[in-house]
Nucleic acid binder design. Structure first.
Length: 809
DNA sequence: GAGTTTGAAACT
DNA sequence: CAGTTTCAAACTC
């Protein structure tokens, strides 16, 4: 508690008084001390800025609103700040953006004030797109989808706002916040809260960040009011899916709470998870009652968290950066009280989340039982899924903010245009989780969700794929899903040990390393290689692979990437495309999965995990230099061992392969099938890409024949289809993990390949999977082979994002 | 849990 | 690019 008081004080110190229309408005800065400095500048600017003048001049604006305005701006700035801070790269940019935004917003304010309750901006570009319905300016790299996404986002935002309003009014969280913050709170009340829902563009084009700013009057929200836990929770559950909070006021707290999650999430997906987590948290807190304590906790030093948060934002979409600016403008726009109310409600949630978040961690770590309770509360929400917050958190932790995604996860699932990038950790579920988390994506996001759902589906099966709604469920699923993120959590909970990366059934959500000399900054480190931060379960020594050393990690990564652009790419590449989509079963199945570089086994006969191919659940390929290859998933020579069901298929495949000349296909047939399945799933839903791996085990079981894949079409379908199919195959496989990883990796690789354009990817794929990967021109391929390529294309697009993600100049 | 084996990653 | 060393996972006892 003492901590809380401290925060308040700090905050108060930061508050700025602004005269608006003769009314004095106090802007409180919740940002942590760290942020203060940075923030200070912007604020002062605001005061002096034309914007403030504008506000003063605005006749139409109600006093309350006006007051809010400033705050909203500030808050916005704050919200963004963290991100800015965190990622040095972006930070500078962001500030400018904010400034821009403000400026821009000013003129537009009137509009905002007018009717639009909620505006959603993915980016500035997005805004333009929305307003003008023109092409987005955004850098996303996403193309068309951006606009759509924006629309969707807006819709979602609206819906959320509605729902939120409904609940928010009642939500106690608001009150609490106020109570907690004291001065700040009161101010807060007046201030508008900005929600920034992050949305991934499922299309894979890019991640869109939608910010919804709602100015709410403090009045509307009664701090004292306590929402019924159930309602609020529900709200959260629903809303959370869509929205991410940036608590302008409490960036820190937010970051703290979210921070961990974000980290893990890395990108959009992360958001998804966060959302879930939040929901859980919020609910729990609601039940608990006081989130306040948490805030304080956040104060102290969450620098790392803040950083992470910032990174995350940055990472998300590079676009996100741009978005930040957007956010500000948006805040200006919205006036609805309703919205504001909702918004506030959101905020509270955040706070709550924050509280929860930390707790959770602690809990996870073993701290309190209370944590458990909280989680329970979350469950209560039920909504769905709220996946066990715990899992999420942990998973999140594991994941590196940005990096992880890159490397491993990227997998983009594209399907439809909805592409979702996943990070796929190579192996670990952590990344996967992240991706899943992205699910949040509101609509379009769905794709991501779908993918998640797919992956998750394994577990639940689910229809999860369902777009929106699913998203939530998906999230849950994900959490639950052993393989995925959850796995991490699970792992954490049940200490999986480092070695266990992925246990067959488990899905190693989290990797745990045992590095002693590498400082976890080399590819020797599974965590590092997977793009995730080391977590407690790790037994590493002198570990630098932690958020605290983010800079170091990033720098190291860069170095490694400079040497080998694909170093962090999934080692196993699947031709997810093929799988996914369409139908080319042949293509899918066969070659889909292979190890990029191939193995070099000499003694293990490619029958042990020493063999990366085997470990990845894929057959050896031409690329392999192994001796005495006996890889059960597929021999170098092309012969395949299918353990179980697939024998016939295998033979066929072999023949097929031979006939084709593509060895890759051979292998694919066997093990690949398993993997492919996952892919196949994805095809239907973007998730498939990501999840596939996770699902693989499951999928493996099902292992639909190639043709089946085609038929499967939708992710959901996949599962269903898979279920029947050949499950055995997987069983044979020693470890599911492999398959998962492989799958994920595959995805990543694709992305990398395409995106990075790295020759390597092309090469790798090409060699093993020549067919699939056509060379250098992924795009061309698309054109050529429509169905498959389409998916790829998306992936490729996504790829570019990677670079952006990393902080490189 | 300690020690050995193995092969990737890193280094030269 | 090849050879060697380092490293940590996988494996064995």
């Amino acid at each position: 508690m003492s901590t809380t008081t401290n925060e308040e004080e700090k905050v108060s110190s930061e508050s700025v008084e602004v005269n608006v229309k003769g009314k004095r408005v106090v802007v409180v800065m919740d940002t942590p001390e760290r942020n203060k400095n940075q923030i200070a500048t912007p604020i002062s600017k605001f005061e002096e800025s034309p914007f403030s003048n504008f506000l003063n001049n605005l006749s139409p604006i109600k006093p309350v609103k006006a007051a809010h305005f400033p705050q909203s701006l500030n808050t916005l700035s704050f919200a963004s700040l963290p991100s800015v801070f965190t990622s040095p790269h972006v930070s500078s940019i962001r500030e400018s953006r904010f400034l821009r935004r403000h400026l821009l917003s000013d003129p537009s304010k009137p509009e905002f004030a007018s009717d639009n309750i909620v505006k959603v901006d993915t980016d500035e570009g997005m805004l333009d797109a929305v307003n003008n319905s023109n092409e987005p300016k955004g850098n996303f790299g996403s193309e068309i989808s951006v606009i759509e996404a924006s629309h969707e986002c807006s819709k979602l935002a609206v819906e959320l706002a509605r729902s939120l309003n409904y609940e928010c009014s009642d939500s106690p969280s608001t009150l609490r916040t106020g109570g907690i913050r004291g001065k700040t709170l009161s101010e807060f009340a007046g201030s508008s809260v900005t929600y920034v829902p992050l949305v991934q563009d499922m299309s894979g084009k890019g991640l869109l960040r939608c910010e919804v700013n709602m100015e709410g009057t403090t009045n509307e929200i009664d701090p004292n009011k306590e929402p019924s836990g159930s309602d609020w929770e529900n709200m959260i559950c629903d809303a959370t899916d869509l929205l991410i909070f940036d608590s302008p006021g409490d960036p820190e707290a937010f970051t703290k709470v979210i921070g961990p999650n974000f980290r893990s999430f890395g990108f959009v997906s992360n958001e998804m998870q966060n959302m879930q987590d939040f929901s859980h948290v919020s609910t729990s807190e609601c039940g608990v009652g006081g989130s306040e304590t948490e805030k304080p906790s956040t104060q102290p030093g969450d620098e790392t968290q803040v950083k992470e948060y910032a990174e995350i934002q940055n990472m998300k979409p590079d676009s996100s950066l741009t978005n930040d600016g957007m956010g500000v403008g948006q805040s200006e726009k919205t006036d609805n009280e309703m919205v504001s109310t909702l918004y506030r409600g959101m905020r509270r949630r955040c706070l709550v989340f924050e509280m929860v978040g930390p707790r959770r961690k602690h809990l996870d770590e073993g701290s309190g039982s209370s944590a458990v309770q909280e989680t329970d509360g979350n469950l209560a929400c039920d909504e769905k899924q709220l996946v066990p917050s715990k899992t999420v958190n942990e998973s999140s932790r594991c994941i590196l903010p940005g990096i992880g995604l890159h490397l491993n996860a990227l997998a983009a699932s594209s399907e439809d245009g909805k592409v979702v990038k996943h990070e796929a950790n190579n192996a670990s579920g952590k990344q996967l989780l992240i991706t899943s988390g992205s699910a949040v994506s509101l609509h379009p996001l769905v794709t991501g969700q779908e993918s998640l759902s797919k992956s998750l589906a394994e577990t639940p099966g689910e229809g999860a794929i369902v777009p929106f709604e699913n998203s939530v469920p998906l999230m849950e699923d994900v959490c639950q899903a052993p393989g995925y993120v959850n796995s991490e959590d699970l792992n954490q909970n049940s200490p999986k040990k480092k070695r266990r990366r992925l246990e067959p059934g488990e899905g190693e959500s989290c990797k745990r390393c045992n590095c002693k000399k590498s400082k976890c900054l080399k590819l020797y480190c599974e965590c590092f290689a997977a793009g995730v931060y080391c977590v407690e379960p790790c037994a590493c020594q002198d570990c630098f692979n932690k958020p605290i050393h983010e800079d170091t990690v990033l720098a190291t990564r860069k170095q490694i990437e400079s040497r080998n652009p694909l170093a962090f790419a999934p080692k196993v590449i699947r031709s997810s495309d093929s799988l996914s989509e369409t139908g080319d079963d042949s293509s899918k199945t066969p070659a889909s999965a292979r190890h990029k570089r191939g193995c070099n086994c000499k003694k293990s006969g490619c029958l042990k995990k020493y063999c990366e191919c085997y470990q990845g659940g894929v057959g050896c390929s031409i690329n392999c230099r192994c001796e005495g290859c006996k890889n059960a998933f597929g021999r170098k020579d092309g012969s395949i061992f299918i353990g179980t069901d697939g024998d016939a298929e295998e033979e066929e495949t072999d023949a097929f392969e031979e006939s084709i000349a593509d060895r890759t296909s051979h292998k694919n047939l066997v093990p690949s099938d398993v993997e492919q399945n996952p892919d196949s799933v994805p095809p239907a839903t973007p998730l498939a890409f990501r999840r596939p791996p996770m699902q693989l085990p499951f999928s493996l079981k099902n292992k639909p024949p190639r043709s089946s894949f085609l038929s499967i079409g939708s992710s959901s379908g996949i599962f269903a289809g898979q279920g029947v199919g050949r499950t055995n195959f997987f069983q044979h496989q020693p470890k599911f993990e492999k398959p998962f990883e492989s799958i994920q990796e595959d995805e990543m690789p694709e992305i990398l390949q395409g995106g990075t354009s790295s020759p390597i990817s092309g090469i790798k794929t090409a060699s093993p999977n020549r067919k699939r990967v056509s060379p250098p021109h992924a795009h061309c391929d698309f054109a050529n082979s429509p169905s498959r390529r389409s998916s790829r294309k998306l992936i490729l697009q996504s790829i570019p994002s990677f670079p952006s993600l990393t902080p490189n100049p």
